[in-house]
Simulated assay, not measured.
Amino acid sequence: MWQEIHGSSNWDNLLDPLHPNLRREILKYGEFVEATYDAFDFDPLSEYCGSCRYNRHKIFETLGLTKHGYKVKKYIYALSHVDVPQWLKRSHAMWSKDSNWMGYVAVSRKEESHRIGRRDIMVAWRGTISPSEWFSDLRTGLELIDNTNVKVQEGFLGIYKSKDESTRYNKLSASEQVMQEVRGKGEEVSLTVTGHSLGGALALLNAYEAKTVIPDLFVSVISFGAPRVGNIAFKEKLNELGVKTLRVVVKQDIVPKLPGLLNRMLNKFHGLTGKLNWVYRHVGTQLKLDAFTSPYLKHESDLSGCHNLELYLHLIDGFLSSTSKHRWNARRDLALVNKGSDMLIEDLRIPEFWYDFPYKGLVLNKYGRWVKPGRQPEDIPSPLGVETPPKNGRPQPF
């Protein structure tokens, strides 16, 4: 029933109550997105700040994601001098002063493809770190995406489409890098695009392009905490193309209410403003979660904590229905919620923001000095797409 789980019927009768198979699928793609944070080097003191810490052949093994049966085919890079958060603009390190790692393309392995009934091409997009960044990042308007009335937020489009021949990693745009990998080979293929926060916005742009270029491809989007992306024409065109979008939001998260607080007022007058091309609209089917239903979470207002992807995954794992309590037999490790936040109640005695490298990444060298370690040669980003040759002497693509 993979097509139904991926929205062929717009998730009718699958969301409330939440079907167990759909819950597992959402969690799987959420973990793929979480990998873009866990593997991202955002240490401003690192010479590789803005890149992925691991090469594509070992990222799933390092982060414990081999259980899903996928392999990473390609890394995605985007220019950092377009409309992106201020903290990303600081990543002018040795490896690149122009680009940042934004995610990856993976495909299901042979055994997994046989189990799920098709070859699944999955694209995972990384988001921003703090929701406070959205207030400055979304002060831009809508821009035409083609020759119709379809308009999207120009900052998102800039990240997705920008390229520069003078750069090392973005001679091709993020869009072009992804679309090189989105091709069927005769067998039944699906494209699942997923992302959190800014990544959820990029996922929609990715899905729009893929379905426009390959009309027969089954395309679905599973986003977490994503903002509005485009106008009513963008929403209608996605529906016309047949892109299936499941938008997971947390009630207490402010980012899905952006960009523009004006939209909240205009929504009250939808009959008058519904067709205005300059008004942002959400797309797809919504799965709304409430942080207050979990007995393990603090109920203080914390914008950053409520936007955290691990909190989203915790709430999905515990969600049964809109009228039920957090399920008692939820399996996901509670400690994961505090990886990058301080949202768990103190009675659990889980340290806040605990996901960090020992000694802040410093190591003691043979001279007795604490230093920043260099990366393994195979983990150093390469614009040529080539890793250190393996033992047989044949280079493998990065």
Rank of each mutant, 00 (worst) to 15 (best):
T140Y: 12
G117Y: 00
V84E: 00
K89A: 09
D120W: 04
I116G: 02
W95S: 13
K151E: 12
A124K: 01
K110Q: 06
W125P: 04
N100R: 12
R90M: 15
R119K: 11
H81I: 00
W101G: 01
R90F: 12
W134I: 00
E143W: 13
S96G: 01
W125K: 11
K97C: 04
A93S: 14
G141H: 09
R118S: 10
T128R: 00
R126P: 10
R139G: 14
V123D: 06
I145V: 15
A124H: 02
Y104R: 03
R115N: 10
W101V: 04
G141S: 12
S113I: 10
I121G: 04
V84P: 02
R90A: 15
S113D: 06
S132C: 04
L138G: 04
M102S: 06
V123A: 07
M122Y: 03
W101Q: 04
K97A: 12
G127W: 07
V105N: 03
P85G: 01
S99Y: 03
H92M: 10
N147M: 06
H92S: 13
K110M: 05
T148I: 11
W125A: 04
R115L: 12
L138C: 15
V150P: 01
H114Q: 08
E112T: 13
R90Q: 15
W134A: 08
S96I: 00
R139V: 12
L144M: 12
S113F: 03
V152A: 15
F135I: 09
K97V: 08
W95D: 13
I129W: 13
R109S: 00
S80W: 01
R126I: 07
Q86I: 14
S136W: 10
W101M: 04
V152W: 07
Q86D: 15
D120K: 09
V105Q: 08
R109E: 14
K97G: 11
V150D: 10
V107M: 10
K110N: 11
L88K: 09
V152K: 01
L142H: 12
S99Q: 06
D137H: 08
V123G: 10
T148H: 03
M122N: 07
P85Y: 08
W87P: 02
I121V: 11
Y104P: 03
W125H: 13
R90T: 15
V105F: 09
H114I: 03
L88I: 14
D83L: 14
T148C: 02
V123Y: 05
G141E: 14
W101L: 02
D98A: 08
D98K: 10
N100S: 12
R139P: 01
R115T: 05
S130A: 13
G117L: 00
G127C: 01
W125V: 09
D137Y: 01
R90E: 12
M102R: 06
S99A: 10
L138V: 14
V82R: 14
A93Q: 05
E143Y: 09
M102C: 06
E112S: 11
K89Q: 14
S130E: 14
H81M: 01
S99N: 09
